[in-house]
C-alpha cells in the first residue's frame, strides 16, 4: 500500500515537473551583438539551436550565422515562417541568414519538421 502511495506521489510530481520544465519555464534570450550596421550572432545547430532565443532590435538588419555541427537530416533546413525565408544548412558549414525585422514581436524559427525550435525576440 505504501509503495502505491509513494509511486502515485512520485508520478504526480513527475507530471508537474514535466509541465513546468517544458511549458512554463521561461527561457532567457541572448542579445545579438551589434557590429557596424547589423546585429550578428552565431548559432550552433546540434540537436537544437544554441542559443535558441535571440533578442534583437527592430529596424536593423540581423545576421544569424548558423553552423550545423551534425549530419542528422532533421536539422538540414531552417525556416523563418514570418519572413517567408528558409535556408539549407550543409553540415559543418556556416550559413548566414539575413533578416530585417521591422516590427517588435516574437518570431519563431524551426527546422522543416518543427522539431527543433528557436525564437527571434524583436524589441523596440
Amino acid at each position: 500500500m505504501i509503495a502505491q502511495i509513494l509511486v502515485s506521489l512520485a508520478g504526480l510530481l513527475a507530471i508537474i515537473w514535466i509541465v513546468w520544465y517544458f511549458w512554463i519555464y521561461e527561457k532567457k534570450g541572448v542579445m545579438a551583438a551589434e557590429a557596424g550596421g547589423a546585429q550578428e550572432i552565431r548559432i550552433r545547430v546540434k540537436g537544437g539551436y544554441d542559443p535558441d532565443v535571440i533578442v534583437v532590435k527592430a529596424g536593423k538588419p540581423v545576421k544569424l550565422h548558423f553552423t550545423r555541427e551534425e549530419e542528422v537530416s532533421c536539422s538540414e533546413t531552417v525556416v523563418f515562417p514570418a519572413f517567408e525565408k528558409s535556408t539549407k544548412l550543409p553540415p559543418f558549414e556556416t550559413v548566414t541568414v539575413e533578416l530585417l525585422p521591422e516590427k517588435p514581436g516574437e518570431y519563431d524559427f524551426h527546422c522543416s519538421m518543427n522539431m527543433l525550435r528557436g525564437k527571434l525576440v524583436v524589441t523596440e
Partner: peptide
C-alpha cells in the same frame, strides 16, 4: 540530451 537542455 540536446533537446532537454533547450527545455524541449
Amino acid at each position: 540530451w540536446a533537446a532537454f537542455r533547450h527545455h524541449s
